[in-house]
């Protein structure tokens, strides 16, 4: 039995000595029209950006619009761009930012602005509806249950960590710069499709949709989405590239496909 005495928690990087004032430049406005406004806030050790937003709401700007829910990085509500980087406000600690300069907080740019930091992300919910639902094979056991190996579950469990913060959608240039929302579903829904395609029990085929309707060919694997994922899902390597390979195998390699079918793969 280990009986090590607990050591005192390593002190977090201190914000100067005790309290300090930090300037936040927050985008205020409606439907894309607005401006940055500066707010000074007293901050203390361990605070995250969302704490400062709450403090400003309570003390200076009660109508400052911001979405949030869990404040623990689990729900994906408080996505914003902090000093130009797409992040969750609840998981961005002030000591990870250069707080001697003003901290700039603005809404995600890829989605229409509603008010202040809140954007209209409803497009994402519409996209999801179009993707074929999960269709399990017949149960493996007489009691109606299935059997699967943990190793096979692991691959998909990575994708199912997604908290739908839509930061990957925000940063994807196909959406952000080229606005191809009508023919490209974005990284979130490639991860979602991959989770279904690789689900050990699933029998549906989404490859034709991915190629023709969902625009997987537009992704040129710059990995911007992977870099901003707060759940550290390897979006490009583990979801998008394998899906691209499956699409290529299905549609551009008919001999290989026949061969594989013959071998029962």
């Amino acid at each position: 039995m280990a009986t090590a005495t607990p050591t005192q928690a390593a002190p977090a990087q201190r914000i100067a000595a005790g309290q300090k004032t930090v300037t936040f430049e927050i985008w205020r406005g409606e439907k894309g029209k607005g401006e940055f406004r500066a707010y000074d806030a007293e901050v203390s050790e361990g605070m995250v950006v969302l704490d400062v937003i709450h403090k400003i709401q309570a003390e200076q700007a009660p109508d400052l619009a911001a979405r949030w829910n869990c404040k623990a990085g689990k729900c994906g509500s408080c996505s914003a761009e902090i000093n130009g980087m797409p992040k969750l406000m609840c998981m961005t600690r002030l000591n990870s930012l250069p707080i001697d300069k003003p901290v700039r907080v603005e809404p995600m740019k890829t989605f229409p602005s509603i008010r202040d930091l809140v954007t209209d992300v409803s497009w994402n919910f519409e996209v999801k509806k179009k993707i074929k639902k999960f269709q399990p094979r017949a149960p493996d056991a007489p009691d109606g249950t299935w059997r699967m190996r943990q190793a096979d579950a692991d691959r998909v469990q990575e994708f199912r960590k997604c908290i739908e913060c839509f930061l990957c959608q925000d940063v994807c240039h196909v959406l952000r710069d080229h606005h191809l929302h009508d023919r490209f579903i974005g990284p979130r829904f490639f991860v979602y499709s991959a989770a279904l395609e690789m689900q050990p029990l699933d029998t549906a085929d989404r490859l034709a949709d991915l190629r023709l309707r969902d625009g997987i060919g537009y992704c040129n694997i710059t990995k911007c989405c992977t870099k901003v994922c707060p759940e550290e899902i390897h979006i490009t390597d583990n979801a998008i590239i394998p899906l691209k390979e499956r699409v290529v195998d299905e549609f551009f390699d008919p001999l290989g496909k026949l061969f594989r079918r013959f071998r029962g793969e």
Binding site: T145, R147, Q150, A153, D202
Partner: peptide, 16 residues
């Protein structure tokens, strides 16, 4: 599970 949830597994492949 029939609706797509992926629970952790036992060594014999059932829900852990």
């Amino acid at each position: 599970e029939a609706w797509g949830a992926l629970f952790d597994r036992t060594p014999d492949g059932r829900i852990l």
